[in-house]
Structure formats: C-alpha cells, structure tokens
C-alpha cells in the first residue's frame, strides 16, 4: 500500500501536467460528492431578493434570474455531469469491450457484423445521433446517457478488437490455447488484463468527450431536466442575460472547460505512463 502510494506521489511529482489533471478531476469529484451533503444554498430555493445578484460573499458566483445561487448550482451540476458521463462511458465499455473481444476472438462473420454496425454508428455525426435519440424518446438525463453511450460502443469495440488482435498471437496466449483453455477464458484471463491500460486511457478520453456532449445536449434542452441543475442548461438560460449578468454565462462555462481540461491532462498523463515510447524520439 505504501509502495503504491509512493509510486503515485513519484508519478505526480515527476509529471506536473498529470498532477494538475488529477488535481482538477479530484476537485470536481469532491465537489460533486460534497454537494450530496452540503451546498452553500439550497439549489431549488427561489429567493426573490437575490434575483440576478452579482458575485458577493454570500453568492460567490452570483445568483440567477430566480435568485438561485450559481455556485451551489455548479456544485450540483458537477454531479449531473459526472453521473451522465460515467454511465455513458459505462454503457460504451460494458457493451463495446465484450463485442470487441468477441470480434477478435471469433473473426469471420461475427467480426464483420460488429465492424459493420460500428461503421453505421460512426457514420452518424455524434451530436446528430444524440439529438435524434433524445428527440425521439424525450429529453432527460437517462436518455442523454443512452444517446452518448451508444456512440461510445463502437469506440470501445474497435479499440478492443484492434488491441486484442496482436496479443492473440503472442506466446503466452498460444500456450494457454494449447493448454486447452477456451476462447472465453483466454479473452478474460489473458487478453483483457493486457489491454486494460489502453482501455482505461481511452475511457478517460471518452469521459471528457461525454462531459462535453452532456453539456451540449443540456444546452439545447435535451439533457437533465429542471430543477436538476446542469452546466449546459445554466449556459442556455444565461444567454439572454449575458449583457447585464455575465457571471451567469462565465462560471458554468468555466466549470465545463476546467473539468474537461483536467480530464484531458489526466488522460494524456496516463497514456505517457502506460505507453512511454510515444514520447521518446529524436531529431
């Protein structure tokens, strides 16, 4: 445990951008957790006296047109954002990874079908696909999760297949095969652990894309529904008031930006750790 902890501190100390990314992500996750127990103001409370209040000590990020505290809304919005992204990536991995392993393990017709379906999903521009799904099944957090998740399936299916194929021919997999292990066990015991780092890096990248997609969907009114705060909807609602209450547009946008930024730094840092040859090079 201490060994792991010290490796972790070493890593963070030696890679400042990884540390910054991890810090930002941790900050938002902590904020989301904290919002479960405490927020400076009740996010649902409507306070006529605080309508459009500028940033101050009691409302550090100001208050919106209903007198709701922007800082509290951003805290709860982090929760919405993280939850939606988490489940969306979960759907992508939960379905995509087994499909990819299946395709790599069986080849032939099944592989063709999986890859063809991936092509079809990829042919849909992601945002259009998400809008279609939420427009058909109604707006809401659950449908946003599905819409974003569907697009993640082929990402993981392809990546898994692509990473698994070369491993299949390695000696230890071959020997496992000769030892009589079936395909299912080989995939689970030998291939999956080997491609896990790649998948985790990709999951971080997809997580940041999912946060952006959730923000975009709720910006156009197809994400989480009120009174549940979401960053994208806060931006949409702020737009008409931007000229006299700019804090309403600045802070939620900044929250999205910083969270996504942190996730990207974290993802890149992890890639450097797991895939170090990438930064080696000479000229």
């Amino acid at each position: 445990m201490t060994a792991l902890a010290s490796t972790l501190t070493d890593t963070l100390r030696s890679d400042k951008s990884l540390a910054a990314g991890a810090g930002l992500v941790a900050f938002f996750i902590l904020m989301a957790c904290l919002s479960l127990a405490w927020t400076p103001h009740d996010v649902a409370a409507i306070d006529a006296d605080a309508r459009l209040a500028a940033p101050s000590i009691s409302h550090p990020f100001g208050a919106n047109h209903l007198g709701r505290d922007v800082f509290s809304m951003i805290m709860v919005g982090a929760r919405t954002s993280i939850t939606v992204a988490f489940f969306a990536v979960g759907i992508g991995m939960g379905i995509g990874v087994p499909l990819g392993l299946l395709a790599a393990g069986t080849r032939g017709v099944i592989e063709d079908i999986v890859m063809r379906m991936s092509d079809v999903v990829f042919a849909f521009p992601a945002i259009i696909l998400a809008i279609l799904i939420t427009a058909v099944y109604g707006p809401g957090a659950v449908n946003a999760v599905i819409a974003i998740g569907v697009f993640n399936i082929p990402v993981f299916a392809r990546l898994t297949r692509g990473s698994a194929l070369p491993i299949r021919t390695r000696g230890y997999v071959m020997s496992a095969k000769t030892a009589g292990k079936n395909r299912f066990r080989i995939s689970l015991e030998h291939i999956l652990p080997n491609i896990a780092p790649t998948l985790i890096v990709q999951a971080t990248v997809q997580f940041s894309l999912a946060v952006l997609a959730e923000a975009a969907l709720s910006y156009v009114g197809l994400g989480a529904q009120p009174p549940a705060p979401s960053w994208g909807r806060m931006l949409a609602e702020s737009q008409t008031m931007v000229s006299f209450a700019p804090w309403l547009a600045i802070f939620p946008g900044l929250a999205i930006f910083l969270f996504v930024f942190g996730l990207n730094l974290l993802g890149d840092g992890m890639r450097r750790r797991f895939d170090p040859h990438r930064i080696v090079g000479a000229m």
Binding site: S208, L212, A215, A216, A249, G253, V260
Partner: peptide, 11 residues
C-alpha cells in the same frame, strides 16, 4: 480541446 464551442460562441 476542452472549450465547449457553444460557450466560445457566447463569449
């Protein structure tokens, strides 16, 4: 990469 394009548009 982390800037939502609609936020940039508003700004």
């Amino acid at each position: 990469v982390a800037i939502p394009n609609f936020w940039l548009a508003i700004l």
